[in-house]
Simulated scan of single mutants.
Amino acid sequence: MPSFRVPTIDISAWVGRGSPDARAAVVAAVDHACRTVGFMQIVGHGIPDAAVADLAAGLDEFFALPLEAKKTYVRPASENRGYSPPKSESLSYSLGVDPVTRMNDFFEAFNVGTSAAEYPGSTATPEDYAANTWPTDTTVFEPAVRTFYDEARRVAHTLTRVFAAALRVPEDFFDDLTGHSIDVLRMNNYALPPGTIELDGELTGMGEHTDFGLVTVLWADQVKGLQVLGSDGSWNDVSPADGALLVNLGDVAARLTNDRWMSTLHRVKPPVIDGTIERRRSAAFFHDGNADAVIAPLPHFVSPDAPALYDPVTVREHIAAKLAGSRAGRRNVTAVREAARVAASRG
């Protein structure tokens, strides 16, 4: 097997007015990454350095609050908004895989996303597009997060245009699937005050999982922890290059392409150094698609030799099953293919 590698792709030709040849080169590189790895490093994305620095400062401000203060921003699990305390989730349940101990992921997180009010005249409802909760005891956090959210959404929209070209569908194909997309920015913190988490052999940063939607745009600092499953069953360390965003496909992309493109399993392992966890921060923008969009393999990816691997499902149904696993502790029994890959992985 060739060594595992996450390719670096400059998408500036699609962010600006690149030549047809330059754009075609981006499409070919993205298509190859989607078929072989499911992850890529994106540069030339156009997000200002200042927006990233402000985001990091905002995360530091919020996560430095006392745990009891942060817990006042906990929302019902089904809403996928607000604060998630340590050990309140287990991402492996979203695949139907039992963790070592129940609800064992030690990270803490804060989620914001699109609300129904942002999609007037659409079929969006508050049940699928909950309103946001913003901390009242921070000053940097909200403006910094709002700015980065808008930038990450722009990058996701650019990538769907590249995807349309790579899949040889009309350039507006994804407009019908994402016109009122469920978009969520999840900000994660992997280092907690002493005494809040017991360091033991069963500690998991974030369990094995695939992302739920179409595409994920991730900012992360360069502390080790993220691991991606290779096609040979090995887990491989991945950290972003200077100025790069990590981009990976989610389940919606895999379903649309009948697994021609990969929704790759990944996890986060806690880097424990001298008995403490080294600080790691990340912010993942999930571009998931319309709640009522029906996702099924595209016809040109189905043939007698490659029958459809997935039954049609709405984005709403798919995400609800995954969230019921990761955030409510009810094993997702529909993720048979993904669970089998976890079982076959090494280490």
Score class of each variant (00 low, 15 high):
Gly46Asp: 06
Leu245Val: 09
Glu108Trp: 11
Ala324Cys: 09
Cys34Glu: 11
Thr138Arg: 10
Cys34His: 12
Leu177Cys: 00
Leu95Lys: 11
Phe148Gln: 01
Ser122Thr: 15
Arg5His: 15
Gly46Phe: 09
Ser345Glu: 04
Thr36Met: 12
Ala77Tyr: 01
Val162Pro: 01
Leu256Gly: 04
Cys34Gln: 10
Val342Trp: 12
Asp21Arg: 14
Ser181Val: 05
Ala131Met: 03
Ala69Ile: 08
Pro304Glu: 15
Leu55Val: 03
Arg81Asn: 03
Thr257Phe: 09
Val155Phe: 08
Pro299Ser: 07
Leu309Cys: 11
Arg260Pro: 00
Arg146Phe: 02
Val37Leu: 06
Ser12Asn: 12
Arg316Phe: 04
Val268Leu: 08
Phe212Cys: 06
Trp134Glu: 04
Ala64Ser: 15
Leu256Arg: 06
Trp235Gln: 06
Val6Leu: 09
Met187Pro: 00
Leu203Arg: 09
Gly275Met: 09
Ala116Asn: 07
Met262Ile: 15
Asp242Tyr: 15
Gly179Asn: 13
Arg81Gln: 03
Gly243Gln: 02
Val30His: 13
Ser92Phe: 10
Tyr83Asp: 03
Asp150Val: 02
Asp105Thr: 12
Leu199Ile: 15
Ile273Phe: 10
Arg281Asp: 12
Ala241Asn: 10
Thr210Cys: 14
Ala320Pro: 00
Val215Met: 04
Ser239Val: 15
Ala57Leu: 13
Phe107Lys: 14
Gly275Ser: 12
Pro120Val: 04
Val228Pro: 03
Arg255Asn: 00
Leu185Asn: 10
Val215Pro: 05
Pro66Asp: 14
Met262Val: 14
Ile47Pro: 07
Leu167Ala: 14
Ser345Val: 10
Ala144Thr: 06
Trp235Thr: 02
Arg5Thr: 14
Tyr73Glu: 08
Gly325Glu: 01
Ala28Asp: 15
Thr204Ser: 12
Leu229Asn: 08
Leu67Met: 13
Glu79Cys: 05
Asn188Trp: 00
Pro135Gln: 04
Gly325Pro: 11
Ala284Thr: 06
Glu68Met: 12
Ser181Asn: 12
Lys269Pro: 00
Val252Thr: 14
Thr334Glu: 15
His32Phe: 10
Ala244Trp: 01
Ala152Lys: 05
Asp311Gln: 15
Gly121Trp: 04
Leu185Asp: 10
Lys71Met: 13
Phe62Gln: 02
Gly329Ser: 06
Ala306Met: 02
Pro194Phe: 05
Leu214Tyr: 04
Ile319Gly: 00
Ile295Gly: 03
Asp288Leu: 13
Pro270Asp: 09
Trp134Lys: 03
Ser326Trp: 09
Val228Gln: 08
Ala117Gln: 13
Met187Tyr: 00
His300Ala: 09
Gly18Leu: 07
Gly329Lys: 11
His32Trp: 14
Leu159Val: 11
Leu218Val: 12
Gly121Lys: 11
Glu89Ile: 08
Ala339Tyr: 06
Val238Pro: 03
Tyr83Met: 06
Asp311His: 08
Thr114Arg: 14
Gly329His: 08
Pro66Met: 01
His180Arg: 09
Leu167Met: 15
Ala293Val: 11
Ala165Cys: 05
Thr264Asp: 00
Arg260His: 06
Pro126Thr: 05
Asp259Ile: 03
Leu59Asn: 11
Tyr93Arg: 14
Thr314Asp: 02
Ala321Tyr: 02
Pro170Lys: 13
Val30Gly: 08
